[in-house]
Structures are given as C-alpha cells and as structure tokens.
Design a binder for these strands. Sequence first.
DNA 1: ATATCCTGTCATTAT
DNA 2: ATATAATGACAGGAT
Length: 631
Amino acid sequence: MQIAKKYFTEGLIQLTILLSLIGVRVDIDSYLSGYYSPLIEINLGPSSAYTQTPFHNLRDTLDGYSVHPKCPELDYFFASRRLLDEVRTLGSPRFPTQLNAWLVHQVSATDKADCGPSTSNNTDTNTGLESPGDEARVEGEHLPDSGREEDEVKVKEEEEPAPLTQLAHSSTLEQESMLEGITALSDPASHHPPTIDIDQHWNSLLSLSVTDLDDLDTLVTERLSDLDTDITTAISQDVSLHDAMVTSVGAFGAASERAESRPVNQQQRALFRLESTGSSHSDASPGMALGLAALPFASVCNLTGNASQHSALGGCLDEAVFDQINQLGLEGLDTMDTQLMGCLGIDPQVLEDLDSDSGLSLESSSGGPVSPGSSEMSSSSSSYCEDECGATGYSSEVDSVPSKGIMDCTTTWSPIDLSESVWHDHSYSSPAFFDQPSVTLPHKGIKEEPLSDDDDDDGSRLDDRELSRDELRARAMCIPFSVLQIVNMPVEEFLEVLDGHGFSPDQVTLLRDIRRRGKNKLAAQNCRKRKLDAITGLQEEVERLHAQRDRLLREKQLTAKTMGAVGQQIKQLTRDVLARLRDDSGQPLNPERFTLQCGANGRVVVQPVRRPAVSTSTGNKTDKRKKEKKQ
DNA sequence: ATATCCTGTCATTAT
DNA sequence: ATATAATGACAGGAT
C-alpha cells in the first residue's frame, strides 16, 4: 500500500506539473469538494505527499548529493523563481506550488552537474549568494525528513495560502481513502486495482518526465549558463574595448609625462618603438626576449602572435611593451639595440627611415643608402629623428613651396648621417615616437616594398621626394628644426624655441602650423586605428551573436520536441486513467468524451470534453434571440 | 577611366 | 587661455 501510495502521490504530482506545463488545468479542489464525487476515482488532491515529495528531494536522495548553500548554481534557482513570479503575474494558469519545488530541484540538478568538479561556468557571478543559498536550503535541501512535510507546507502557505490550507488538511488518510475509493469504484469483478498497468504507466510517466525534465534541466542550465557566459563575455568585451581606448590614451598621456620628466630616455624609447614595429611583424624575435622578460603575458602574446591577425590590443601593447622596456633603464640599451637589429635583420639605416610617420607611411621612407630626410641639427643639444614622412600624396604640393627659400637655406640643411643622430645622440626627447601608433595596419606591409623599389630606382632625387610639405616649408623659412623635432619636442621647449631664436612672425606661425599638423597627423592615425579596431571588434561580436542565435534556435527546437513528447505521454496516460474510471451507472468513461483538467487551485478534475463551442453557443444565442423575438 | 583605399590636412569640439 | 587629443570631412595620390 505504501508503494502504491508513493506511486500515486509522486506520479500525480508530476502529472499535475506536466499538465500545467502544457497548459492543462488540474482542478484538485474539485476532487476534494466532491462535486465530481461519482467520477472521483483518484483523489490526488493536495495530500501531504503532494507537498512533501518534491522532486529535488527524490533526486537529491537518489543521487546522493546535496546543494551547498553557497553553490553558484543556486543563481539558477533564483532566476527560475523570478521567472516563476513573472509567470504568475501574467495571470496565466498558475502552477501549483509543486513547480516551485521542481524549480528548486533544478538547482539541485544543476548543482549536481556543475557544483562539483566543474564549476567553470560562472565563478564570478556568485556575489551575494549566501543568503539565497540559505533560503534554498530552508526550502528543502537540508530539511530533516521528519519535519519536511510540515516545513514545506509552511513554505507553500506563504505563497498560496488558500489552497495550501486544504493541502495541510488533506492528509495521508485522505490519500488512503482515495485509494480505497478507487478500489471501491473499480469493477467489482476485479476487486484488486489494476496496479500493474497503472504502475507501468506511472513508471513510464515518471521515467519519461524525469528524463525529459532532465533534458529540460539541461536546457535550462545551458540557457542560463549561456546567458551568464554571454553577459560575462559582453562585460569583458566592453572592458576590453574600454581598456583599449583608455590604455591607448593613458599610454599617450603617460608618454607625455615621461617625456617631460625623463627626456634623456626618449631617444632610446623611439628606437625601441621602431624595434617593436619590426618585431610585431616578425614572429617572436629572439632579441625581444631581452626586454620581454618582464612583460605581461598579454604583451608577450601580442608580440609573439601572428602579425596578420592584429588584435585590438595591439596598439596598446606596443606602448605597454616599450613602457616596460623603458623601465628597464638605459643600461644595456645599446646592446639591446644591437641584438635587436641583429636578430631582426634590420639595417639601422632602414630603421632610421622607418621611424617616420608612425609607421603608417613607411612607404615614404625608403631604405636607401642615404637617409633622405635627414638634416643636420643646428641645435647643439637636440637631435630629433629627422625623417618625417607620410607626404607621399603631396609631391605635387611640394612645387608650391617657394623654391627660393629652399635655395637660400640649403646650406643649413645639409644631409647628415641620421644614424648617428638616432643611435648616439640621446640628448633630445622625442615622446612622439612613443606616441606614434603601432604599425599594424594591413596596408603597411603591402606598400612598403614597391616604394622601396622606387627609391632604389631614383635614389638621387630622394631628398626632394621624401621631404614633406612642411619639411620643405621649414627649409624655405630657414627654420633650423626638423618637422619631427618641432612636433615631438615638449611644449615648454617648443615655446622656448619660439621665444629664444628670434623667429619672425611668419616663422613662428609656420612652426606652430608644423607642430599642429604633425600632432594632428598622429592623432588621425590613432583615430583610424581605433576605428578599425572598433570595426573588428563589432564584427567579432556579430559573429558571436549569430552563433548564439543559432544555438538558441536549436535549443528551442529541442525543447519543443521534448514538450511534444511529454504531451503525448500525458495524453496516453490520461486515456488510461479515464478508461479505468466509472460513472454513476458503473459504466467506464469514454476517454474521448472526458479529460483530466488541472485547476488553478491545484485540483485535478475530470471534465467532459467540450464540443466545438462556437457552433453550439452561437446556435443557442440565435435560438434565444428567436425566442425573445417571439415573445 | 573609374573605384577604392590610404593618408594628410582642416575644422571643430572636448579635455 | 592655451595646448592637445579626437574625429568627421575633404582632397589628393596610389593602386
């Protein structure tokens, strides 16, 4: 008897839940009230077992695990409960409170799956979970078996007082009487209830429901974990973009500050910048190991990664790399230069040319035998890297520069071996080298070769060709500073230059314009790089969202398929139950004419199948109208 | 010849 | 107030 009772109670609980899930209302109160007393064969009303047999207890007991109150998977429980509350607020068929227990059970299921060895899904979203964990524990996880029934009834009473009063009143005795009633209403010929068949059905239903609910558990768990993962990813993505921006800006700002505080160090910084440019396009230069030893892992990964796959952090990491390198101090920089040059196979002469234009206009700086843009510094103490390239599109505009001025001032701009000024003269700070964005644009490498060929072709005219418009203007105005010097020198020094060299107003204006244009050129390059990075990031996000959408659609299809199977099982079970019920005359009920309905209050009632109400109702209405008209 | 891309520059705004 | 960064728009050269 206890076994049959257990089957009935547990099975009916699940039946009620499943009927609720597919929208069938099970009116248990109707059974209790006795309105359908002739038809009541199974009083599966709110018995004590109805409330004290939550699935999670069974499963937890069977599976031999329990939920730790601080288990991160308890988040799912509260998400589920929130969803349940939302469903309730919609006024849709209210789920019996067993569903609450089922949802609690979901926590247990997920806990079993994930709380143990694999808790990698959400490790960062568990803040403030202690109280939920405690609450979940109160609701059924760690209740002593002796007091479980009463405690759970209390929990349910908090949510649905009215029916739960009935639940509390419906006791095991009612269940037993219900079973007795079933026996009494059964065919007298077969006095024993068809326990075997019903047991099989119940077992079938239980197995099905448990299995399918496990599937649903899995789906729910995956869905929640996906959402969690997506949220985490979105946050990290956002942070990454933000970091990319902020780091870049911060690096620039820091570079400026360092430029002011440590001007001596910046020539080397510029050199390392160049080295970084080269290394970022040549995999894992061994020479970089000297400076990379202390670099963050991300920086190393970025440097050692494929250059063709430029990451969004590439620009920032360049600054980070050289910031780290600069922190190593001046010691060993010369050897580092040599090592880097040797390992990278870069001719120092070439590097001198590559320095210009933040690497984005490398095509304008050839690796010719003579540094075309170099010029001897009239300033005794300063030597900026001279070649300010990126003027490839202005060869025609060079003509507009007054050639007369150039002729007048040519003597002060005799080319020098820039390698000396670059590699040995560290007296001038050049923070802009550090500011220059990393050479990561894909077109850079493409443009590099043909232009070098061109430079080889007519290297004799490199001086004029390589000079930018502002460079020529500076020469024309007899300004003893190169464009890079003007652009890269600190603002204080620039102001001193403006004031202390007795420049004419035109020269001052030109100096300011050169500096402004140079700064703006770098800013434009950074801006474009950021834009490309943002586009790349958005494209990746689109791909990710597409993948997520596809996955969710597959899950939706699987869920619908599972629910359809559950519905079919329930229909079959309903037919079997109805086939064993008898009406007042002792005749078996026609399964085609009756159905089991789950009421909002938790009662399961046997109701006649409603005929197509449209025709009948309209017909009745028309008949009534006719009668009224006749009257 | 045309389209597209790249780059420098200007104007404007924000910091 | 000034310098500078950021960015949209435009122009011109390169491909």
